[in-house]
């Protein structure tokens, strides 16, 4: 499978029966990127926003609730771990499960912010993410139904997976990775919940890159 142009050279492969968890140059890059952002989420201090009182010179710094902070940090780390799983799994169904998990943890990160508009956005994103799991599981199961296996290693380069299954997978990842569109792009580092919001962007970027690799490989 490593003579395909997108993969790069093989670095590591771990066999569990027909499911082979593999690291190519491509997935290793994604893996290291996600790992770096987990470390950032662990060591980062929360952003403390300032409110300016209208008409005066007074400036208030918002206090971050300790419970909220711990919850968001936990969710950010969990999201990073799910991303690690999604970029390194060698199984279509495991990939879709990890992607669904990324969706759940993304909403967790956003829901830590106790702001009505933010929660509204998170709710709407949650509906999209839930709908997207249908496509994810549908794509994986159509691939299983037509090819008889879910292993990316075995399907690689054969072109057996029907176009519909690939389209379903991409649609599903689009739904799960849609989280950044529900957050103002300009406020990645200053938004409520920063810097843990960063993990949302990283995870959605990485699952998009990974699904592109998968549909070009299988």
């Amino acid at each position: 499978m490593f003579n395909l142009p997108i993969e790069g050279e093989e670095l590591f492969a771990l066999e569990f029966g027909d499911i082979v968890n593999y690291f190519s140059l491509y997935t290793t890059t994604l893996f290291l990127f996600a790992a770096a952002f987990i470390i950032i989420a662990i060591i980062a201090r929360p952003e403390r926003q300032t409110d300016i009182v209208f008409g005066t010179d007074a400036v208030y710094t918002k206090e971050i609730n300790q419970d909220n902070l711990r919850f968001q940090r936990f969710m950010a780390i969990a999201c990073g771990l799910a991303t690690l799983g999604a970029v390194s799994s060698g199984d279509l169904f495991n990939f879709s499960l990890f992607t669904a998990l990324i969706g759940i943890t993304n909403i967790g990160i956003v829901a830590g912010v106790n702001n009505r508009y933010v929660l509204n956005a998170a709710y709407n994103y949650g509906i999209v993410a839930m709908v997207a799991t249908t496509f994810l599981f549908g794509g994986a199961s159509i691939a299983l139904g037509t090819c008889g296996t879910l292993s990316i290693w075995e399907l690689a380069g054969k072109g057996l997976v029907p176009l519909a299954a690939k389209m379903f997978l991409v649609l599903g990842v689009m739904g799960e990775g849609m989280a950044p569109f529900y957050i103002a792009k300009a406020e990645i580092t200053r938004a409520p919940g920063a810097p843990y919001v960063l993990m949302i962007h990283v995870s959605s970027l990485l699952i998009f890159l990974r699904v592109i690799e998968i549909i070009l490989t299988v």
Binding site: L97, A111, L119, Y123, G126, M130, T133, F137
Partner: peptide, 20 residues
Amino acid sequence: PGLVVGISELLMLAELYIRK
């Protein structure tokens, strides 16, 4: 696993609705 993921997303959405 599909069912578990579905139920956990449903729980999450319901909790979010209560909080919202």
